[in-house]
Design a protein around this nucleic acid. Structure first.
Lengths: 168, 168
DNA sequence: CTAAATTTTCATTTTTTTTTGAAAGTTTAA
DNA sequence: TTAAACTTTCAAAAAAAAATGAAAATTTAG
């Protein structure tokens, strides 16, 4: 396969994967484009490569920066801003995990804590089932939370790096 | 908090979480409703509880069955079908992991394998960056794949199960 | 077999999400 | 300070996803 064709396929596949995981397809595509670019790109270049509007490119790049996946760069003598993506996959995985933890896990744990404190008749099956289900999900969520903390705190990539070797 | 209020909040929260992870909000809500129901429910009951149409309820319940999260039940003397959700959180997590692996991980690995075989000039930075990025992602994907296999094959829940007991 | 009960389908409508693009805002070189 | 270069915003449009509901299909009791 030729590089040009492979690039397009990669961008398409990454976009599809993103959308299946609740990440805007275009955002995932811009990320893919930048990941395979040796050089930082300008907004113009991103717009041209993916045929998207200026507004879309601008907002998407900002979101990627918020996710910690892309950084703005300035080149001496150039007035334009350049965008460069982190390329180490473990760092990318870590950033995504960090963000989703902050945006989704922490809020749901807060809600589950409230819901686990619901009061009702201990003889009522509806109450018992609710309480058990919510309590169990809450425990799982807290465990995922703790596991992520450990993973993310570790400088070394124990989860994807070393544990995997055990199973090889 | 009262049970009725708590139920609504749980259904809402579960629906939101689902939509953030690429799962149709209504599907997640139906799942939430069934998870907290001690008894299997009919399509009519699901429609009424969540104010959704018959068509929507039917398709959503079928999808949940496809995900292995809900099962059809028949009650003697009753002609209607009843729907019952698995309630063990580890089993739920396992089913979701299995399905997403099958639907998303396996296909992307197939594509990455093709893309990793792209040919080009070893001196070309664009080629080098593409190759490195795709190869690294491919390795990560294969490692996740293997880890999931091990996790899912294990009858015992080493990841969520045993760790849970420690924190109980 | 018949008809009532129940489930499924899917063209259409509604809702939600994403994108556009032009105007407003900001920065910087001179 | 000015004006060109560049970035950001956001109301409106477009696209995508989800929901509706009535008709068709299926099932089952009698």
């Amino acid at each position: 396969m030729e590089l040009a064709e492979a690039k397009l396929k990669f961008i398409e596949a990454w976009g599809k994967l993103g959308s299946e995981w609740g990440i805007n397809r275009t955002m995932a595509q811009v990320h893919a484009l930048l990941m395979i670019s040796p050089e930082a790109l300008t907004t113009e270049e991103v717009m041209a490569e993916l045929s998207i509007s200026r507004g879309n490119a601008n907002m998407t790049l900002r979101d990627l920066i918020d996710w910690g996946l892309v950084e703005k760069q300035h080149k001496t003598g150039e007035r334009k801003e350049f965008f460069y993506a982190e390329k180490d996959v473990w760092t990318i995985a870590r950033r995504v995990a960090e963000e989703r933890k902050k945006r989704e896990l922490t809020p749901i744990i807060k809600i589950l804590d409230q819901l686990a404190g619901v009061d009702g008749d201990a003889k009522d099956p509806a109450y018992k089932t609710f309480k058990t289900t919510v309590t169990d999900i809450n425990k799982l969520a807290n465990n995922v939370n703790k596991t992520l903390d450990t993973m993310l705190k570790a400088e070394e990539n124990w989860f994807f790096g070393s544990i995997l070797k055990v199973f090889k």
